[in-house]
């Protein structure tokens, strides 16, 4: 290494704080949940069966571990709920964010641009609890009475899109995905907007000179130059969607121990489930419940790592399509 100046080293030191924080959290979670990992084995990931057991009975010995009678920890339903809701949220958010950023950067009237941009930035400011409240009072009834019936009418022949196969309450997978999509859109849109704003003028002018339409200039010339930014923003947004807790908890319908059969079925995500169960888990005298929740967090970490890697690969593919 030829460039190991003190300046670069100190910057590297600052950057290294981030992985250190992550590693210490993972280390803590692993040691903390060690007992649960041993007790739960691989069934933890593969079974749909979560029960804290009878916390008021005396703990019993099971496979050499002291646990409340009837305690079982299987989280497959929450893994599925997490992946499905985040995947749908990204599916909704990416095109909307790209469209929003393009509109703001290129089409919005100049005198309104700052105000309109601020509306999008404000989305990021709304506390997640408030999103949840809005979800309960506005979005959920809307899904129950408008969006749901409309989807059922058009795509109802596919069981997954038929609301009559669910509670029909509006709480569920779709509500969670839409709230998540709305929450992550500003992350992608504002980052992309800033990037589009900084594309060198020469680039756009030379494209016009070749006779390209305005839309072609933006999608064909400008978007490809900000590709890296877009991928980065999508991955960041995905991370936020996977880890979002409060808002999802409030609109997801809190499914326990079953898989979503339709777009309208209640789900639970891992992050929301940790929050909703932590208080009860603290009452477990054997501590197996809290440690199993820590194990969920650990699994969520692993999933985030895998999904991150996958998203990078997928995002590359998406951008090629947009390049026209």
């Amino acid at each position: 290494m030829k460039n190991l100046t003190p300046f670069r080293l100190s910057l590297a030191g600052l950057a290294l704080v981030i992985p250190c924080a992550l590693i210490s959290i993972v280390f803590f979670l692993t040691t903390y949940s060690w007992k649960a990992i041993g007790f739960n084995g691989f069934g933890f990931l593969g079974t749909i069966n979560w029960s804290l057991g009878n916390l008021y009975a005396n703990p019993v010995h099971q496979h050499g571990y002291l646990v409340p009678p009837g305690a079982k920890y299987g989280i497959l339903a929450f893994i599925v709920g997490t992946l499905l809701s985040s995947f749908l949220a990204i599916l909704f958010a990416v095109p909307i964010s790209i469209g929003t950023a393009m509109f703001l950067a290129e089409k919005a009237p100049a005198n309104l641009r700052t105000a309109l941009t601020m509306i999008v930035e404000l989305v990021a400011v709304v506390p997640s609890v408030v999103f949840g409240l809005w979800g309960i009072f506005v979005l959920v009834p809307l899904i129950a009475h408008v969006i749901g019936p409309a989807i059922t009418a058009t795509l109802g022949f596919i069981p997954f899109f038929n609301m009559n196969n669910s509670t029909g309450s509006g709480y569920g997978l779709l509500a969670a995905s839409i709230v998540l999509a709305l929450m992550i859109t500003p992350i992608i849109a504002t980052t992309l907007y800033d990037a589009l704003d900084q594309v060198p003028r020469e680039l756009r002018e030379s494209a016009y000179a070749l006779g390209a339409t305005h839309f072609e200039v933006v999608t064909g010339t400008m978007l490809p130059t900000v590709r890296v930014t877009l991928i980065g923003a999508i991955v960041l947004a995905l991370g936020r969607a996977l880890g979002e807790t409060m808002a999802v908890l409030m609109v997801s319908g809190g499914a326990l121990n079953y898989l979503p059969g339709t777009l309208f079925t209640p789900i639970s995500t891992m992050a929301a489930f940790i929050l909703s169960q932590l208080d009860s888990a603290l009452q477990d005298p054997s501590e197996m419940a809290v440690k199993s929740l820590a194990e969920i967090a650990l699994v969520l970490f692993v999933i985030t790592v895998i999904v991150n890697a996958a998203a990078r690969l997928l995002a590359r593919g998406t951008i090629r399509v947009i390049q026209l």
Binding site: I18, A21, L22, I25, L29, V235, L236, L238, G239, R240, L242, G243, E244, T245, M270, A271, I274, L275, L278, A297, L300, F301, I303, T304, V305, V307, N308
Partner: peptide, 10 residues
């Protein structure tokens, strides 16, 4: 990027 996926409650 992985750290952003950490649920805030964790």
């Amino acid at each position: 990027d992985t750290l952003t996926g950490t649920p805030s409650i964790v």
